[in-house]
Design a protein around this nucleic acid. Structure first.
Lengths: 347, 347
DNA sequence: TGTTAGCACTCCGGCTGCGGGAGTGCTACG
DNA sequence: CGTAGCACTCCCGCAGCCGGAGTGCTAACA
């Protein structure tokens, strides 16, 4: 990372004006346009000097000699970093959020699906969310269900998570043994997924009998539940927004983006990656992250939490030429509401 | 629908050749190209006459006077209808299918997800599936789970379907009443979802006590489980294929297509609609269906079944300029394997 | 020293005109 | 009925040209 000196306040103002104008119009912006904007009060010639300097510093580029300027990723970065903390929502947006959270929905998974939809409608980008991990959640039910030739392992978490897995039922496992095993599993209630998994592995190791494999299978069910491998469990919504004509993505780039959005594991890691650094709102712009760089995309994410523990992450993906101000305000507002709701459900 | 006379066998051959060539190249095909193809043995001038006739009959169009011909939806329809029943899979495809179904997966929902992925890889289009309705499936578990201030209704079906719903726990419902209600629910085991739902409504009607709402809520859970409203439950995969550069969709059309693919209810109805008419493989081309017409798309679907009862539908969506032969072969093969697997799991 | 007016210069994008080529439809002939 | 031949149509790519938007530089000014 190159060390960059603080920009003068006029340079900063020019950069802001360019970013905003470019985000609005989608076209390279010229010095004249900026000079005419109220608030800078300086001629286009001066703006041209500033622009040349900003380009020298890496904040702007040209598509060609006689075109206007467009922001680089670094330009967007500076713009975002120097944004006032409290971006404002439009009234309609505020109302949409309020009315969504006014409905009493008790299931956090459902709420997340809805929130992602909501965000995608608010921002016109695609919404994403990583749901809470169940690792530290107490188990309230752990059952083996007889299903004829097969059987189901069913785990229910304190906060409403349900996981299942279907297994072959070994011939050696008669009804008595099934009930016996189920009784042993019932003893694990109240433990967290992690604890229960460890306990099962221990039991299986001690247990030379034939139920060993069964215990291992149950442990495996708990493991995948924690890592979200069974079904991925990243929530994605509003991807059709990304195919909008206004978004100037190349076809191939768009394809790759969709491809990644289908690989839930990957998306999950990206989201965890980008939100790891910061405690609140995190913005990742284009090439700043290897994955998002591949598709010219930016991410705006925020964690939702109960007290000090982070439950998950919610946010949007869009083009680098994104309306960051509005996206940040929307994501922040939704994340806050989610935190409130989660706190309430928890209590 | 205009009544169309049987095409002569040469006209039909010409139409076939044009469809296949156009699907391959994506460009309007000229009389010369067809004449050079082995199998017709007639000069380009003759082909031109045939083409003019086919255009007159509505099977072909021109983009402009001096361009080659492209098939209309009606042209594709005739092509598809006169295709030999057994399209052949390439060896690699056959192997991919075999190896997928060789893995022992016991959960039909998981299998469907995988099958849809498989189909999308085989065909390079997007895969779709409607899972079995749970309406006539016996319930093996129906539980109320205490979750502190809330509680969960949990229903498990004979074939592995799990549904849940989280409810507010009324203050009036103490632990004793909860267990009492749970005992009553346990009596519904063995009934199908439909039966259990009806029974619950009846119980609620007779029951003047305060648990009435609770019973209604449980009934509602069973209802949405049947109609797939909770989560939609259409399985979609490989949508990134649709954004491939080779597919000549306009941006706006693509957007609408993605939009529909996100509305699971709608997709489900479309699929049920198109597969309703036929007992086996069904092909819907472009404007033949109001929905698919909106996005220039074609659907190839097939039911999977156990014995005589249809469980669900699986298929692909792609552009009208689709490789129908290969898509049909893939869908047919996967549907057959699914039926076999379902029969096995059932037995 | 910073700002500004002026100006030459660059380069894109749209318009025009011009073949070349692909493909058609028609006609006349075997 | 099929085919060879041919005139005709229309797209598409290319070259050249112009107008305009926007730049960078210079010189003058506060």
């Amino acid at each position: 990372m190159v060390e960059r000196a603080e920009l003068g306040s006029r340079k900063s103002a020019v950069l802001h004006a360019i970013v905003e104008e470019y985000v609005r119009s989608g076209e390279p912006v010229g010095s004249e346009t900026i000079a005419e904007r109220a608030g800078i009060g300086v001629s286009s010639a001066t703006i041209r000097n500033e622009m040349a300097a900003l380009e020298e510093l890496g904040y702007l580029t040209h598509p060609h000699t006689s075109a206007g300027r467009i922001p680089t990723d670094i330009g967007y970065r500076h713009y975002v970093d120097s944004l006032p903390a409290g971006g404002r929502l439009r009234d309609a947006q505020r109302r949409a959020i309020a009315s969504y959270f006014a409905e009493a929905i008790l299931d956090l998974e459902e709420v997340l699906k809805g929130s992602v939809q909501l965000l995608s409608r608010l921002t016109q980008y695609a919404g994403l969310a990583v749901p809470p991990s169940v690792a530290d959640e107490p188990i309230v039910r752990l059952e083996l269900i007889d299903m004829g030739p097969t059987m189901m392992v069913l785990a229910v978490g304190q906060h409403g998570r349900v996981d299942k897995r279907i297994l072959d039922r070994p011939e050696s496992l008669d009804d008595r043994a099934l009930r016996e095993t189920e009784r042993r599993l019932a003893e694990l209630r109240g433990m967290t997924y992690t604890e229960a998994q460890a306990k099962l592995l221990k039991l299986a190791a001690e247990d030379a009998r034939e139920h060993r494999d069964l215990l291992l299978d149950v442990a495996e069910t708990l493991r995948t539940a924690q890592h979200g491998e069974s079904g991925g469990h990243v929530v994605v919504g509003g991807v059709s927004n990304l195919a909008d004509e206004a978004q100037a993505w190349r076809r191939e780039t768009l394809r790759r983006l969709f491809e990644t959005l289908e690989r839930e594991q990957e998306i999950m890691h990206v989201l965890q990656d980008v939100s790891a650094g910061s405690a609140g709102l995190a913005v990742t712009i284009g090439t700043e992250h290897p994955s998002t760089g591949e598709w010219d995309a930016s991410l705006v994410t925020a964690p939702f939490r109960v007290g000090d523990t982070t439950l998950g992450t919610i946010g949007v993906v869009g083009p680098t030429r994104m309306d960051y101000l509005s996206a940040m305000a929307s994501v922040r507002a939704v994340a806050r509401r989610l935190s409130e709701l989660a706190t309430e459900l928890d209590g």
